[in-house]
Design a protein around this nucleic acid. Structure first.
Lengths: 123, 123
DNA sequence: CCGCTTGGGTCTATTTAGTAGACCAGGTCT
DNA sequence: AGACCTGGTCTACTAAATAGACCCAAGCGG
């Protein structure tokens, strides 16, 4: 029994932003939540839509998101198995302020791209 | 000459959110920006305030943030050297929608902590 | 004059996190 | 019987992050 992943689940920091960012601020969480925004999706559908995530990371991140109450996981006892992921109220409420950020990104990505080019050029 | 870090700087995805998230969605960027919000800070001051970041990651992340136009880096040619980092207009404008998220985190971190406990308990 | 201190990093070795891809269950279709 | 389906897990490999030694050049104490 290798028991490889202790999956440390601690609220170490006194600062809540740190905690939430630690979870949400990884490479995939926000992307998964955004992908689930339109509605319920299955595991492989998420894989396809996101594209460049590994199964393990998708699985792990979904587990974290479920654990933190952002999504629910429903297993239908069929063969082949069917598992559906869907946003909870908390998940939806999170995406509200997140939308503001997405809008910002949309509005400013040109500026950023330009800054990046300038930096490269003027190096 | 090892030349170890190609520092790939590409705008691969057609989707701007992906791009912006890839950069500011790492462990440290947002934290650094938030730390710089009150005003100009020096390298070691950032180290101390953030606490658990390594020099290398701080250096690298600051470079990325400068590159993308979120902050400016000013070197005063003194000895010992003094280097100051400060938010640009873009940096400040980013923190506006970000603030909404911080507020959300503040409001919901209890709910999340509770969900996490429930998950652990009911496992 | 020697050696210590100071700030802002870089370099290297080690630990950790993420990826790719093989594998599994078990019922259906051919 | 054998191939195929989904939603994962396991293992071996690779990429990324960390810790900590090291560097530079001026100033300062003795």
């Amino acid at each position: 029994m290798p028991q490889p992943q202790p999956e440390s689940i601690e609220f170490d920091h006194p600062c809540p932003i740190r905690d939430v960012l630690d979870r949400i601020g990884d490479q995939w969480s926000v992307l998964i939540l955004l992908t689930l925004q339109p509605g319920t999706k299955r595991f492989n559908a998420l894989m396809r839509e996101i594209g460049d995530i590994s199964k393990q990371m998708l699985s792990r991140t979904l587990k974290h998101l479920e654990q933190d109450g952002f999504i629910t996981r429903t297993v239908y006892p069929e063969v082949p198995p069917r598992v559906e992921y869907r946003l909870t109220e908390l998940g939806h409420s999170f995406l509200e302020p997140m939308q503001a950020l997405v809008t910002w990104a949309d509005a400013h990505h040109r500026t950023i791209a330009e800054a990046r080019r300038r930096y490269r050029g003027g190096e």
